[in-house]
């Protein structure tokens, strides 16, 4: 175990915030769909992967076609790639809900869960096809400056300094901006109150004149767009593995754990859970062992399920028999 230094601590805090932001964007999609349809959309993490790969394709194909070399991309070119990836995944989210989940609306929840796993496998393997994204890893163009900013640190013993990668700042700012926008949408608009009404009771929401199918589609579109944003941000930070790589599964699973820890179905809970999980993961890696980084995630999950099964911000609900 390394000795405690302020530098280590702050550096790990920066990483935690950046990773937590990514987990939060993904966790929101799980929790919103659960909030409304009471099932876990296991294909959600695959939409993240598609978002990352779409970003790659848009950055290396579409940007040059527009006359922008990816290595000289300006911030708005990066923003354009982000928006295109979000739009593409939103469309996919819409199609998945309409084609796969809507016909199962009245089926037992287990059947829907199995359908979700099927969609997950379908997306992973379709992505690997040669005429789609192929079965090789890819190097994503950075799109943002890569020279880290040094804060503090004179080099003298005892002084502390932190290096911050611009990409971590961009990840955090983009994620926070999207989460604030979502918060405003859900809690301050008419459509948002319709979403909350549908999540409380579909039949009673319909009696208000709410088009329930529209609200459900919209929720999937929103979740998929946020997943795509997470995929984009993940891509500009890391290189891309092929779509069926286990590391993607772990990314999605960690975000799912974050949603459960925060209280599945609760939007603010998902964000809280995501930052908590990221901090536990990063600080555990720093002070105990980085080999156990996934173990900490599930240890937190087990602890929360034992002590507060409804999650940190979740409400106790009685299962109707």
């Amino acid at each position: 175990m390394p000795t405690f230094t302020v530098t280590n601590f702050l550096q790990t805090l920066v990483t935690s915030v950046s990773m937590g932001s990514l987990y939060a964007l993904i966790a929101l999609g799980y929790t919103m769909v659960y909030g409304i349809l009471k099932f876990i959309n296991f294909a959600h993490s695959d939409v993240v992967v598609l978002g990352a790969w779409f970003s790659y394709v848009f950055a290396v194909k579409t940007l040059p076609a527009m006359g922008i070399p990816p290595d000289q991309a300006t911030w708005w070119a990066g923003g354009l790639v982000l928006i295109m990836a979000m739009a593409a995944c939103a469309a996919i989210g819409f199609v998945i809900e309409r084609a796969a989940y809507k016909p199962m609306r009245k089926a037992p929840r287990l059947n829907v869960l199995i359908t979700a796993i099927g969609i997950s496998l379908l997306l992973q393997n379709t992505g690997q096809l040669n005429f789609v994204f192929g079965a090789r890893p890819a190097g994503m163009p950075a799109l943002v400056p890569t020279t880290p900013w040094s804060i503090g640190g004179t080099g003298e013993p005892g002084s502390f300094g932190v290096k911050i990668n611009p990409v971590d700042v961009i990840i955090t700012l983009t994620a926070v901006a999207l989460m604030v926008a979502l918060q405003v949408l859900v809690y301050r608009t008419k459509l948002g109150s319709a979403m909350r009404a549908v999540s409380h009771s579909i039949p009673n929401a319909a009696l208000m004149g709410i088009n329930v199918n529209f609200v459900i589609s919209f929720t999937f579109v929103l979740g998929a767009a946020l997943a795509a944003a997470a995929g984009f941000l993940y891509a500009i930070k890391y290189n891309l593995q092929q779509t069926a790589h286990p590391s993607w599964v772990m990314l999605g699973l960690t975000a799912f754990v974050a949603a459960v820890v925060g209280g599945i179905g609760n939007i603010r809970g998902a964000v809280l859970g995501a930052y908590l999980i990221a901090a536990v993961q990063q600080f555990g890696s720093l002070y105990i062992s980085s080999e156990l980084r996934d173990v900490y995630v599930f240890a937190v999950l087990i602890a929360v399920l034992l002590l507060k099964p409804e999650g940190l911000l979740g409400k106790v609900t009685r299962e109707k028999v």
Binding site: S193, R196, A197, S199, H200, S201, P203, N204, A205, L207
Partner: peptide, 10 residues
């Protein structure tokens, strides 16, 4: 509706 159908979370 029967049971009032209010949204208790709103």
């Amino acid at each position: 509706p029967e049971g009032r159908g209010i949204f208790s979370n709103l």
